[in-house]
């Protein structure tokens, strides 16, 4: 489904060029769950951004279903993203936040509303639809963000340290949810995490070290 070949990515810091990814190869099959661990600054988030198609590699290529480009209009159907800081829009309530991803993707309204309600029920937020993000706990916000990531029924879910801002118990619940929903909907999952226990629950565990995946 997704194949990354010899990805190279670096950043310029003043006069210095800092290489972050030095030739990453990665293949994700449909419905597969993969975890990526690594030290802070090792390039995990950069790799996720490349896989999501919102950043471009300096060398190498990402193939989505064999294609080297992921047009904006296809991105929503292909990829859902979950972030450490949730990034819920504060002016929208929980339901509207979930629906926003469908709106941006141009999904049919009625179907999107049904799907959003169904997902909020699945993540345990039924009855909290009209609550603003500020009225939700951290775990609830992350669950709302997961519902948002899945509202367009993407084939790949990219989760960037989704438990980083949560306590151990809440974090474990979020990982349960990601893996459970992923398996249920045959959505592939790439989980970037520092937590070895969470990583161990995925089908395949990888470690990003010195710009290379092992």
């Amino acid at each position: 489904m997704l194949q990354a070949a010899a990805l190279v990515k670096g950043y310029r810091s003043g006069d210095r060029q800092i290489a972050v990814l030095r030739g990453v190869d990665l293949t994700i099959a449909a419905g597969e769950s993969v975890s990526i661990r690594g030290e802070s600054g090792s390039g995990k988030s950069t790799l996720l951004h490349l896989l999501a198609g919102i950043d471009t590699p300096d060398a190498g290529a990402v193939h989505w279903d064999g294609r080297t480009t992921l047009p904006v209009e296809r991105r929503a159907a292909m990829i859902g993203m979950v972030f450490q800081s949730f990034y819920l829009i504060p002016e929208l309530n929980t339901f509207e936040n979930v629906l926003m991803a469908a709106r941006v993707a141009g999904a049919p309204r009625a179907a999107a509303r049904t799907r959003a309600r169904e997902l909020l029920g699945r993540v345990g937020l039924a009855g909290r639809e009209t609550h603003l993000p500020a009225q939700l706990s951290g775990g609830e916000r992350q669950r709302a963000a997961i519902a948002r990531a899945l509202v367009n029924s993407p084939r790949l879910l990219l989760a960037d340290e989704p438990t980083g801002n949560l306590d151990e118990q809440t974090g474990a619940g979020v990982i349960d949810l990601l893996l459970g929903l992923g398996a249920e909907t045959r959505t592939a999952l790439v989980l970037v995490t520092h937590n070895a226990a969470h990583a161990a629950r995925t089908a395949r565990q990888l470690f990003l070290h010195e710009g290379v995946l092992r």
Binding site: A52, A76, F83, Y87, I89, V104
Partner: peptide
Amino acid sequence: EIGLLGALG
């Protein structure tokens, strides 16, 4: 949030 909107498509 603007970054998120970009990431959402």
